[in-house]
């Protein structure tokens, strides 16, 4: 990692295979375009749908999904607070969606070895948004539509339009992992034990 923050790169969604090749662990990106939003309950339903041999309510092929459940929007606003939720809870579901063509996931926190293997195999990335910055992040979300599972409330499946949505590449398609690299760089070995 460098001593200064890399300059954030503007990226248009969805992520093409060419763009995915240029993304590396630690890169700062500003995403513009369309992405989907879903967390625990929406993932559970999507997997049940796939297991039943049915089609998903939206085609996730080549798309990015953001693990998030917003607070209600105030009148006149597109969305309320809208930061990432912990991604590990989606670990059971993600490999299936990656195999079905999902190219990117946005969340916060660590992913399992199985998910990391799937990302490498199918050339997908995991991007980190800043947990606890939901008010700030909401400003880059311009439009929100519920596309399925409306009964799930905050956990419904949404389609959102974003402009300059800030993320950091955590896991790239080459097997890089920002959490492991960052931690080992700053860890002070404990000699007291």
């Amino acid at each position: 990692m460098k001593n200064n923050m890399p300059i954030a790169r503007a990226i248009t969604l969805p992520l093409s295979d060419e763009v995915l090749k240029t993304l590396h662990t630690g890169d700062e990106l500003l995403l513009t375009g369309v992405m989907y939003v879903g967390r625990d309950a929406a993932h559970k339903r999507m997997i049940e749908t796939l297991e039943a041999g049915e089609a998903l309510p939206v085609d996730l092929k080549g798309q990015v999904i953001y693990f998030m459940g917003p607070t209600p929007a105030r009148p006149g606003k597109a969305v309320g607070s809208a930061g990432p939720t912990s991604s590990y809870r989606m670990d059971t579901y993600s490999p299936r969606l990656i195999a079905a063509g999902l190219k990117g996931m946005i969340g916060k926190g660590m992913r399992s070895g199985v998910v990391k293997k799937s990302m490498k195999k199918y050339k997908a990335v995991y991007l980190g948004a800043i947990g606890g910055a939901g008010a700030l992040i909401s400003r880059s979300i311009k439009k929100v539509d519920v596309v399925a599972y409306e009964d799930l409330g905050t956990e419904a499946l949404r389609r959102i339009e974003v402009r300059d949505f800030p993320v950091t590449v955590v896991n790239d398609i080459y097997g890089g992992d920002l959490y492991q690299e960052g931690r080992s760089q700053y860890r002070i070995a404990d000699l007291r034990r």
Binding site: A82, A135, S138
Partner: peptide
């Protein structure tokens, strides 16, 4: 910066309230 935006716009600091 998030704390400033949240207080000014009355948007929760975090979506997990």
């Amino acid at each position: 910066e998030n704390a400033e935006v949240a207080a000014r716009d009355k948007v929760p600091l975090c979506q997990d309230t």
